[in-house]
Amino acid sequence: MTGRVIVITSGKGGVGKTTTSANIGTALAKEGYKVVLIDTDLGLRNLDLLLGLENRIVYTIVDVIEERCKLRQALVKDKKNPNLQLLAAAQTRDKSAVNADQLREICEKLKEENDFVLVDCPAGIEQGFQNAVAGASEAIVVTTPEMSAIRDADRIVGLLGPKEEIESCKLIINRVRPSLIKSNEMMSVEDVLGILEIPLVGVIPEDTGIITSTNKGEPIVNDEEALAGKAYRNVAQRILGEEVPFLDLDEPKGFVAKIKNAFAKWKAKV
């Protein structure tokens, strides 16, 4: 088996790299694929928290590299889905504890036994970024419809471009707020795409459910109702090669508006 190694990166911090990694990983595992999530944010690990695995971590990626344990020992199985495993970052070390070659080697080993290896990249463009990208052949750039995030994403796209190993580089636009776009207070998906010019793989709406899901350590893809969860499940489908239409985020939320909307849809069908 030769799995796909995908790095999830953004440049800017706080745009949702880790949330995206946790959710795509969980969604792919739910589809029955074997997935390993690697947290490469040494010193600032958080992927364990989003997955609710923080109390199960015994060994970290640094322990693997410094040969205090076998790679297999350091993989923490997800509570719900044994297809999903986490290789946690060390919390007490900094980015210099690991180099690109070591990460590449770990990715090589992991992809032999897994369908997907998702690498959660730290913010920034320094060593941590270079390490995370080293073993990957695909990249997903996460941004939000904000100037600073888009600018940083553009920088990342520019840095990934010359790397021969990276065969594809796709975009996720996170925390989209349709109401703001409607009132022209936020850049639309088209606006962002016009600037970044890389293929789109997902549009994730701002969803307060993300807060609750983070609190509980349960990725939102497990919530069948949540719109953001659905959006992430769609991303997983697209990664698997399915053609899935992008969610219609304009759907009104109110009760009356929902009826109106349903009526309009029904009318359109007839």
């Binding site: 928290l49 609710g52 923080e54 807060i211 609750t212 983070t214 609190n215 509980k216 350590g217």
Partner: peptide, 8 residues
């Protein structure tokens, strides 16, 4: 979920 988060 808030108290869950705080405790975790």
């Amino acid at each position: 979920s808030k108290s869950v988060a705080t405790n975790r």
